[in-house]
Amino acid sequence: VTLFVALYDYEARTEDDLSFHKGEKFQILNSSEGDWWEARSLTTGETGYIPSNYAAPV
């Protein structure tokens, strides 16, 4: 399992994006889409796309 942590807060701009807060942890589901990764929040259980430059490996 690849775990990442949010470096900044992010507010979803589309219904496919995932809103999150700094410090929140994610499981990365798909990182082959370039700058946007499909991720599941370990806090909320929700799935959506996150900007890859807002996350770092745990």
Score class of each variant (00 low, 15 high):
residue 51 P to E: 02
residue 47 T to K: 10
residue 30 N to D: 12
residue 16 D to C: 15
residue 48 G to A: 03
residue 3 L to C: 10
residue 38 E to T: 12
residue 24 E to I: 04
residue 45 G to N: 08
residue 27 Q to V: 15
residue 4 F to Q: 02
residue 36 W to N: 05
residue 57 P to L: 08
residue 27 Q to P: 00
residue 52 S to E: 04
residue 53 N to F: 12
residue 6 A to G: 04
residue 58 V to T: 08
residue 2 T to D: 11
residue 48 G to K: 03
residue 49 Y to H: 08
residue 58 V to R: 03
residue 27 Q to M: 14
residue 26 F to V: 02
residue 20 F to Y: 01
residue 50 I to N: 01
residue 40 R to H: 06
residue 32 S to Y: 10
residue 41 S to K: 14
residue 55 A to Q: 04
residue 8 Y to M: 09
residue 28 I to N: 00
residue 57 P to T: 05
residue 16 D to E: 13
residue 6 A to P: 00
residue 11 E to I: 14
residue 31 S to K: 14
residue 45 G to A: 04
residue 17 D to K: 15
residue 51 P to W: 07
residue 32 S to G: 12
residue 32 S to R: 11
residue 41 S to M: 08
residue 30 N to V: 08
residue 19 S to P: 05
residue 21 H to K: 15
residue 27 Q to G: 02
residue 14 T to P: 01
residue 58 V to K: 04
residue 56 A to E: 10
residue 44 T to K: 03
residue 34 G to N: 12
residue 13 R to D: 07
residue 35 D to N: 09
residue 47 T to Q: 10
residue 17 D to A: 15
residue 43 T to N: 09
residue 46 E to I: 11
residue 5 V to Q: 07
residue 25 K to T: 12
residue 54 Y to C: 09
residue 17 D to F: 15
residue 48 G to T: 01
residue 27 Q to C: 13
residue 17 D to M: 14
residue 17 D to P: 01
residue 31 S to I: 13
residue 5 V to N: 02
residue 58 V to F: 12
residue 38 E to M: 15
residue 27 Q to T: 10
residue 30 N to K: 09
residue 19 S to Y: 03
residue 13 R to I: 11
residue 36 W to Y: 12
residue 34 G to S: 13
residue 11 E to L: 10
residue 32 S to L: 12
residue 43 T to G: 06
residue 36 W to R: 15
residue 5 V to E: 09
residue 26 F to A: 00
residue 27 Q to R: 08
residue 2 T to G: 12
residue 8 Y to P: 00
residue 51 P to N: 09
residue 6 A to Q: 00
residue 29 L to C: 11
residue 21 H to C: 13
residue 32 S to I: 11
residue 1 V to T: 13
residue 37 W to H: 03
residue 50 I to Q: 01
residue 51 P to Y: 08
residue 48 G to H: 02
residue 25 K to W: 14
residue 23 G to N: 05
residue 4 F to L: 07
residue 28 I to D: 00
residue 20 F to P: 00
residue 44 T to Q: 02
residue 26 F to R: 00
residue 56 A to H: 08
residue 4 F to D: 00
residue 30 N to L: 06
residue 8 Y to S: 06
residue 56 A to M: 11
residue 20 F to S: 01
residue 55 A to D: 02
residue 26 F to K: 00
residue 21 H to T: 13
residue 19 S to C: 05
residue 8 Y to R: 08
residue 53 N to V: 09
residue 19 S to I: 02
residue 50 I to P: 01
residue 39 A to C: 05
residue 32 S to C: 13
residue 49 Y to P: 01
residue 35 D to F: 13
residue 43 T to V: 10
residue 43 T to Y: 09
residue 49 Y to F: 13
residue 28 I to T: 01
residue 23 G to M: 02
residue 38 E to S: 09
residue 37 W to P: 00
residue 24 E to N: 05
residue 32 S to T: 13
residue 55 A to H: 04
residue 10 Y to Q: 01
residue 15 E to C: 13
residue 56 A to S: 09
residue 46 E to T: 08
residue 38 E to L: 15
residue 43 T to R: 13
residue 35 D to K: 10
residue 35 D to R: 08
residue 58 V to A: 09
residue 12 A to I: 02
residue 47 T to A: 07
residue 49 Y to E: 01
residue 35 D to Q: 10
residue 48 G to D: 01
residue 51 P to L: 07
residue 33 E to T: 12
residue 43 T to P: 01
residue 56 A to D: 05
residue 43 T to A: 11
residue 16 D to I: 13
residue 40 R to M: 12
residue 34 G to W: 09
residue 58 V to I: 13
residue 6 A to Y: 01
residue 10 Y to D: 00
residue 15 E to V: 11
residue 54 Y to P: 01
residue 27 Q to A: 10
residue 21 H to D: 06
residue 8 Y to L: 08
residue 39 A to I: 05
residue 28 I to Q: 01
residue 28 I to P: 02
residue 23 G to T: 01
residue 39 A to V: 15
residue 38 E to V: 15
residue 9 D to P: 06
residue 32 S to E: 10
residue 53 N to I: 09
residue 29 L to P: 05
residue 53 N to E: 09
residue 53 N to S: 14
residue 51 P to H: 08
residue 34 G to K: 12
residue 18 L to N: 01
residue 1 V to Q: 13
residue 26 F to C: 05
residue 22 K to E: 07
residue 15 E to N: 12
residue 24 E to Q: 08
residue 39 A to D: 00
residue 36 W to C: 07
residue 47 T to W: 10
residue 22 K to G: 03
residue 28 I to W: 02
residue 35 D to A: 10
residue 48 G to W: 04
residue 25 K to H: 13
residue 3 L to D: 05
residue 56 A to K: 09
residue 33 E to A: 13
residue 43 T to S: 12
residue 54 Y to H: 07
residue 43 T to K: 13
residue 2 T to C: 14
residue 36 W to S: 06
residue 41 S to F: 04
residue 52 S to M: 10
residue 27 Q to Y: 14
residue 56 A to G: 08
residue 15 E to P: 14
residue 13 R to F: 08
residue 19 S to M: 03
residue 56 A to R: 09
residue 34 G to F: 09
residue 2 T to I: 13
residue 42 L to H: 05
residue 4 F to Y: 15
residue 41 S to I: 09
residue 3 L to Y: 13
residue 1 V to E: 13
residue 7 L to A: 03
residue 19 S to L: 02
residue 4 F to K: 02
residue 16 D to S: 15
residue 23 G to W: 05
residue 40 R to Y: 11
residue 18 L to I: 10
residue 30 N to R: 09
residue 44 T to W: 02
residue 2 T to V: 13
residue 23 G to D: 05
residue 3 L to M: 10
residue 3 L to N: 05
residue 43 T to H: 10
residue 50 I to L: 04
residue 15 E to H: 12
residue 42 L to K: 03
residue 45 G to M: 07
residue 3 L to Q: 07
residue 53 N to G: 14
residue 20 F to Q: 00
residue 42 L to F: 07
residue 52 S to R: 13
residue 17 D to H: 15
residue 39 A to H: 00
residue 5 V to A: 05
residue 25 K to F: 15
residue 11 E to C: 13
residue 46 E to C: 14
residue 47 T to N: 05
residue 54 Y to S: 15
residue 30 N to S: 11
residue 22 K to R: 11
residue 46 E to K: 15
residue 52 S to T: 07
residue 24 E to R: 01
residue 7 L to Q: 05
residue 13 R to T: 12
residue 49 Y to D: 01
residue 56 A to Q: 10
residue 48 G to N: 01
residue 17 D to V: 14
residue 26 F to G: 01
residue 14 T to Q: 10
residue 36 W to L: 08
residue 27 Q to E: 14
residue 22 K to A: 12
residue 24 E to M: 06
residue 8 Y to E: 07
residue 38 E to D: 05
residue 4 F to G: 03
residue 57 P to R: 06
residue 22 K to L: 06
residue 29 L to N: 05
residue 6 A to W: 02
residue 10 Y to N: 02
residue 18 L to S: 01
residue 12 A to D: 01
residue 10 Y to C: 04
residue 26 F to E: 00
residue 9 D to K: 04
residue 9 D to L: 04
residue 25 K to P: 06
residue 20 F to L: 05
residue 16 D to T: 14
residue 31 S to G: 10
residue 21 H to S: 13
residue 53 N to T: 11
residue 36 W to H: 07
residue 46 E to F: 11
residue 53 N to R: 12
residue 6 A to E: 00
residue 9 D to I: 03
residue 39 A to E: 00
residue 1 V to R: 11
residue 9 D to V: 05
residue 34 G to P: 14
residue 48 G to Q: 01
residue 4 F to P: 00
residue 45 G to K: 04
residue 52 S to K: 14
residue 29 L to D: 04
residue 56 A to P: 02
residue 35 D to W: 09
residue 31 S to E: 09
residue 3 L to S: 07
residue 30 N to E: 07
residue 52 S to Y: 10
residue 29 L to K: 06
residue 43 T to E: 14
residue 1 V to I: 13
residue 3 L to I: 15
residue 9 D to N: 08
residue 1 V to K: 12
residue 11 E to A: 10
residue 45 G to T: 03
residue 21 H to F: 13
residue 17 D to E: 15
residue 12 A to Q: 06
residue 35 D to M: 11
residue 24 E to A: 06
residue 17 D to Y: 14
residue 16 D to P: 04
residue 37 W to R: 02
residue 42 L to P: 02
residue 23 G to C: 07
residue 19 S to D: 03
residue 40 R to W: 07
residue 12 A to W: 02
residue 32 S to W: 11
residue 38 E to C: 15
residue 44 T to M: 02
residue 14 T to K: 13
residue 27 Q to K: 08
residue 19 S to R: 04
residue 25 K to Y: 15
residue 41 S to Y: 03
residue 46 E to R: 15
residue 54 Y to F: 11
residue 29 L to V: 08
residue 22 K to F: 05
residue 13 R to W: 07
residue 9 D to C: 10
residue 8 Y to C: 14
residue 8 Y to V: 07
residue 47 T to G: 03
residue 42 L to E: 07
residue 36 W to G: 03
residue 35 D to H: 10
residue 7 L to C: 09
residue 5 V to I: 13
residue 43 T to F: 09
residue 7 L to H: 03
residue 7 L to R: 04
residue 10 Y to W: 10
residue 52 S to G: 07
residue 47 T to Y: 09
residue 37 W to N: 01
residue 41 S to C: 06
residue 19 S to N: 06
residue 49 Y to W: 15
residue 37 W to T: 03
residue 8 Y to N: 06
residue 8 Y to K: 07
residue 12 A to S: 11
residue 28 I to F: 03
residue 56 A to T: 09
residue 3 L to R: 05
residue 2 T to M: 13
residue 40 R to A: 04
residue 4 F to W: 15
residue 43 T to L: 13
residue 52 S to A: 14
residue 38 E to N: 07
